[in-house]
Design a protein around this nucleic acid. Sequence first.
DNA 1: CGTGGCCTTGAAGACGCTCAATTCCGGTGG
DNA 2: CCACCGGAATTGAGCGTCTTCAAGGCCACG
Lengths: 242, 242
Amino acid sequence: MRTSSSTADTKGEPLESTLEARAELFQDAMGFSGIADREIKKLAAMATLRRFAKGQMVFEQDQPCDYFHLVASGLVKVYICSASGFRMTYLLARRGEPLNLVGPFTGDPRFLCAEAMQATDVAHISRHDFVRFVADNPILFSNIMAILSKAVDSANSRIIDMVEKRVEERLLRVLLTLLDKFGAEIRLTSAELAELAGTTVETTLRTMARLRNLGIIESERGQITIIRPASLKNPERLPLWV
Amino acid sequence: MRTSSSTADTKGEPLESTLEARAELFQDAMGFSGIADREIKKLAAMATLRRFAKGQMVFEQDQPCDYFHLVASGLVKVYICSASGFRMTYLLARRGEPLNLVGPFTGDPRFLCAEAMQATDVAHISRHDFVRFVADNPILFSNIMAILSKAVDSANSRIIDMVEKRVEERLLRVLLTLLDKFGAEIRLTSAELAELAGTTVETTLRTMARLRNLGIIESERGQITIIRPASLKNPERLPLWV
DNA sequence: CGTGGCCTTGAAGACGCTCAATTCCGGTGG
DNA sequence: CCACCGGAATTGAGCGTCTTCAAGGCCACG
């Protein structure tokens, strides 16, 4: 529950990349469908890649938002962090997923932090360039709104979960979501799961032990395997937006 | 915690109104600043007003979103409702405040319900007209994004509150927010406060009794008065987006 | 071979939910 | 004018779920 990130927080190191590689990234990035190739090229020309080591911060809380970020490889967790150090992960972003769709429009500091969970490459576009590009390609607005509406619904349904659902149900929902997105083999530690479900490491461990006894999952150090996916598929358990 | 809204759910009754009155409404509506008068007129021409009685639903969960709604008078609560009937109010909208900024863009059903807390007039614009208008007035996008970013931050900080803050702190934060928006005289019942703070009526009552003993508030039936606003102004206690 | 991260388990205690009973108030109808 | 009813406010008692604190084991890696 309390955490201390003592890891380096330099903003990654520049990475050489070809225009083609970047164009290919934006080509099928989430929210960028329906953009003409010619426009995608422009986008790629404005972007630069940076590499982050495991544990490095891509951006931090209360910093003005100067860049739009898009994951090119690796895995990034986006979380909110309270004054007392409690963390709540609400997005695990991999290739093609944006880290901050809203921020660039206002530029204002937000609550969010983003941290690389593995060695990760992230594409950056300056806020100014990004906003102008979106204005030139209005289809992006609809795309962004569609994503935002899911994100808002997910946040709202999480609020309800926190109050009325027990930890076991929340964890099951997290597992279901991870199953959908990453497959049955989930390479996360209990601490990371706890931050996704909004609970403590100890409670997570205890609950996972129960699920293991029920034969729903298997787990070893830093790795969980879902054995009986059907057990998670409760129709009432809508997936989160992670 | 369990609720049963047995109130009528007809969609309000049509209300005569002048073009000028509607234009004046949109003139200083939240998110509509920076629009030329000529454009505002267009907006007003597309809008129709409807009246809702106390307890009537403006829109309900899982219904496709066909209209953009803007409150013209009265008070509307927007809330999410879980399968088990638990409710969480996350917006109290009065004149000039939109009820669904995101919905019209996708048209998809959402989790949200909106219910009139008093006799209320609401302006409706068809989703199609609204989206086209926004496309014609791109400044609206920035405005909407700015509002959404606050809403998302608020939802996220609420998630953290639910997990790590006690009911008393959540209630204090709700009271602070209501103080900022509505002034020291708050005309809400304990049940309504409970839905805002994400707790039960009983716990709300008990907590309010404690605050009353501390001399922070006074309360009578359906009415709370904040006596010592300074007690709520903890710098760590950022206001919500209500 | 030691250190640090991760997993595991126990025990205690708190917070807030649930159920239940009672009172108070305002409005409605006889 | 009075009786009744429904919504709102109170207050008490019991208890379940989780957090918290604590201690120990396991594994990988330098």
